[in-house]
């Protein structure tokens, strides 16, 4: 009988299809059907600032951020100091608002040097995990107004010469879940022609890095190399080292730095001392950033 093997084949086929697919095969199908949503790399840096200088990050739409910064330091050759804990103090208050996921603007004021500053940030390219976009690029335009003389800097009376501008392109990459790095080619127009003698147009290369120590704590550092500066006579390059610590809506940035200022121009330019651990070189501070969501999103949850 010829139909016997045919029947057998048929039986086998039927059996094979009737058994169906097992759990793993179902999961394999789901892997194919998984939604293709854009996955942007998040938390390249944890806040809008590495420590003092701008980072590649901006906040999500409708987020208002308050920054309260403090900096304490001792002045050199001041052994008979009567001051409590530290000789000098500087405070900073700033606010910034994210108009969209890409665009943020902000302003701030600093007590010690009397600088008012404002900035706008635009996130041009966002690093992605799902597609081949290996870097993120953010553009920053900022301005600082020097309202009074401070330290040894005498400012011109003409108010237009007290205004300085900064333009930055921040290029960043999160290499893995722990390590992020950014470089920022920067152009600074120093209205008063300080600290580099009578040179108003300055170029600078900024660097920033973050290393995650734990789920809520990371190490951060930044450096700014100013081209054409005679270090020592014409001040020193910015260096800071610190720790970022996030607690819910609050982010604390503890830092050691040679900068006395908080804004993007004077922290890069006006640092009379190099970074060291003796009085004058060491400035210890905390920046507390509080994040307020003005526009809450609607997750449309199942619980009505």
């Amino acid at each position: 009988m010829k139909s016997k093997p045919l029947f057998l084949v048929s039986f086998c086929l039927t059996f094979f299809f009737a058994v169906g697919v097992n759990g793993q095969e179902l999961l394999d199908i789901l892997e194919k059907e998984s939604p293709k949503m854009p996955i942007y790399t998040q938390a390249i840096f944890k806040t809008n600032r590495v420590l003092l200088t701008q980072s590649v990050e901006t906040r999500k739409k409708g987020t208002l951020e308050f920054i309260l910064g403090t900096r304490y330091w001792n002045i050199p050759n001041n052994d008979n100091s009567q001051s409590f804990a530290a000789d000098r103090f500087s405070g900073h208050f700033g606010m910034q608002y994210a108009v969209s996921d890409r665009f943020t603007f902000g302003a701030g004021i600093t007590s010690y040097d009397g600088i008012l500053n404002g900035f706008a940030k635009y996130r041009l390219v966002r690093q992605r995990q799902d597609k081949n976009v290996p870097i993120g690029i953010t553009l920053v335009q900022g301005a600082s107004y020097f309202s009074r003389d401070f330290l040894r800097y005498n400012l011109p009376l003409n108010s237009s010469e007290r205004l300085s501008y900064v333009t930055q392109a921040i290029i960043a990459r999160k290499f893995d879940r722990n390590f992020s790095f950014q470089v920022s080619p920067t152009y600074i127009h120093s209205g008063s022609g300080q600290p580099v003698s009578d040179q108003k147009d300055l170029f600078l290369m900024g660097f920033g890095a973050r290393y995650k120590l734990g789920n809520h704590v990371s190490l951060a550092s930044e450096y700014g190399y100013l081209f054409g500066r005679n270090e020592g006579e014409e001040d020193f390059n910015l260096f800071s080292l610190g720790v970022n610590w996030e607690v819910g809506d609050l982010i604390m940035q503890f830092s050691m730095s040679n900068a006395k200022s908080f804004d993007d121009i004077s922290s890069y330019l006006f640092n009379p001392n190099n970074f060291h651990f003796r009085p004058g070189g060491l400035h210890i501070g905390v920046n507390a950033t509080y994040v307020l969501h003005l526009k809450k999103r609607n997750p449309d949850s199942l619980k009505k």
Binding site: L27, M37, H293, K296
Partner: peptide, 28 residues
Amino acid sequence: QVVSIVDENSGEIAVQMLMRAFVFKKAL
């Protein structure tokens, strides 16, 4: 955007979701 599949005949169920697709009230 959770995907799920069931085998109508055997009663087997599989579910998969991306953690990044969860939407919170607060972006942070």
